[in-house]
Simulated assay, not measured.
Amino acid sequence: MDEWFGGTQSMVAGALATGIGFAVLAAVLRRRLGWLGALAWCGFAWWLVVIALVTLVPLYGIDLAVPAETRSDTCSLDYGGPAPEGFWIFSGGQRLLNTALFVPAGALLVLATARWRIGWVMAPLGLLGLAAYSLAIELVQLELARIDRACDITDFVDNVVGAVIGFAAGVVLAAALRPWRARTA
């Protein structure tokens, strides 16, 4: 992986490019799912891509990088251990960033599944899927030294907390927006 790909520029460019693609897909799906369903499903899928970009794109030029030469061969189980302060895009600290990163995914998951009765089963299973996604990201960070990332149990816990907060917010939004009443006209 060359240094032409990495850092916040690649993250933002990837998010914008895929965001446009998912917006077009939402416009196509609007007739079948209604505007709320199409935006929720495409927004959820897009946000999973954004999470991957933020967590797996190499950190060239960002203070959070963990050089491959100094990274551990195991996942850190030191909960709450030394976490950097964050970077320019989100100054509240890495732990707050990890939590906030998964909030939209949890909320969009509920909105996407609330349209159907089976959503009351799909949404909690999806929440477990978000936890598994976070775990998979941490394991990829452990295995790929070239991306200058480190596997950390604190990141996993913070991600899951964010998904749960988003899930709760999604339940409130679903009650207000009532996607089960959406017309597919």
Score class of each variant (00 low, 15 high):
residue 18 T to D: 08
residue 166 G to K: 04
residue 10 S to E: 09
residue 129 G to F: 06
residue 128 L to V: 14
residue 160 V to I: 09
residue 149 R to A: 07
residue 145 A to L: 02
residue 10 S to T: 09
residue 26 A to W: 03
residue 72 S to C: 02
residue 97 L to S: 10
residue 112 A to K: 07
residue 165 I to C: 06
residue 44 F to Q: 08
residue 17 A to H: 00
residue 79 Y to S: 13
residue 81 G to V: 07
residue 61 G to P: 02
residue 103 V to G: 04
residue 6 G to Y: 04
residue 161 V to W: 10
residue 83 A to V: 12
residue 49 V to P: 01
residue 40 A to G: 05
residue 124 P to M: 09
residue 90 F to I: 06
residue 64 L to N: 12
residue 62 I to F: 13
residue 75 C to D: 10
residue 27 A to W: 03
residue 33 L to E: 01
residue 151 C to L: 02
residue 14 G to W: 05
residue 65 A to L: 08
residue 125 L to H: 10
residue 80 G to A: 07
residue 117 R to F: 08
residue 134 S to K: 05
residue 147 I to C: 05
residue 57 V to A: 07
residue 170 G to V: 03
residue 70 T to R: 06
residue 173 L to H: 04
residue 86 G to Y: 05
residue 38 A to E: 01
residue 125 L to C: 10
residue 54 V to R: 14
residue 126 G to Y: 01
residue 35 W to G: 00
residue 72 S to K: 00
residue 45 A to K: 03
residue 41 W to I: 04
residue 53 L to T: 01
residue 117 R to A: 14
residue 160 V to F: 11
residue 158 D to L: 14
residue 30 R to T: 08
residue 149 R to G: 01
residue 83 A to M: 14
residue 145 A to N: 06
residue 91 S to R: 15
residue 16 L to D: 06
residue 105 A to Y: 05
residue 130 L to Y: 06
residue 162 G to E: 03
residue 48 L to P: 08
residue 73 D to M: 09
residue 180 W to A: 14
residue 79 Y to E: 12
residue 24 V to T: 12
residue 182 A to K: 02
residue 117 R to C: 06
residue 181 R to F: 02
residue 14 G to V: 10
residue 10 S to N: 07
residue 36 L to V: 02
residue 59 L to M: 15
residue 151 C to D: 01
residue 34 G to C: 00
residue 164 V to E: 07
residue 26 A to M: 09
residue 119 G to R: 07
residue 111 L to N: 04
residue 35 W to V: 00
residue 145 A to C: 05
residue 39 L to P: 03
residue 13 A to R: 10
residue 7 G to A: 04
residue 128 L to Y: 13
residue 146 R to K: 15
residue 123 A to S: 12
residue 148 D to H: 11
residue 22 F to A: 01
residue 43 G to A: 11
residue 59 L to E: 14
residue 137 I to L: 02
residue 90 F to Y: 14
residue 38 A to P: 08
residue 5 F to E: 03
residue 133 Y to I: 07
residue 145 A to I: 08
residue 126 G to F: 04
residue 76 S to K: 09
residue 72 S to A: 04
residue 27 A to K: 11
residue 134 S to E: 05
residue 146 R to Q: 13
residue 105 A to S: 09
residue 149 R to T: 04
residue 124 P to C: 05
residue 169 A to D: 13
residue 2 D to Q: 13
residue 106 G to C: 07
residue 35 W to M: 00
residue 6 G to S: 00
residue 74 T to W: 13
residue 84 P to S: 15
residue 152 D to F: 03
residue 144 L to I: 13
residue 101 L to N: 03
residue 112 A to I: 05
residue 95 R to Q: 12
residue 132 A to R: 10
residue 79 Y to L: 15
residue 138 E to Y: 02
residue 168 A to S: 11
residue 149 R to Q: 06
residue 71 R to S: 00
residue 11 M to W: 12
residue 146 R to F: 12
residue 177 L to W: 01
residue 91 S to H: 14
residue 122 M to H: 12
residue 125 L to V: 06
residue 96 L to G: 12
residue 69 E to D: 01
residue 26 A to T: 03
residue 3 E to Y: 12
residue 40 A to T: 03
residue 85 E to M: 15
residue 169 A to K: 10
residue 50 V to Y: 12
residue 150 A to D: 07
residue 75 C to F: 10
residue 154 T to D: 09
residue 108 L to W: 01
residue 180 W to I: 06
residue 20 I to S: 12
residue 113 T to D: 11
residue 73 D to L: 14
residue 130 L to D: 11
residue 87 F to G: 08
residue 162 G to N: 10
residue 158 D to H: 15
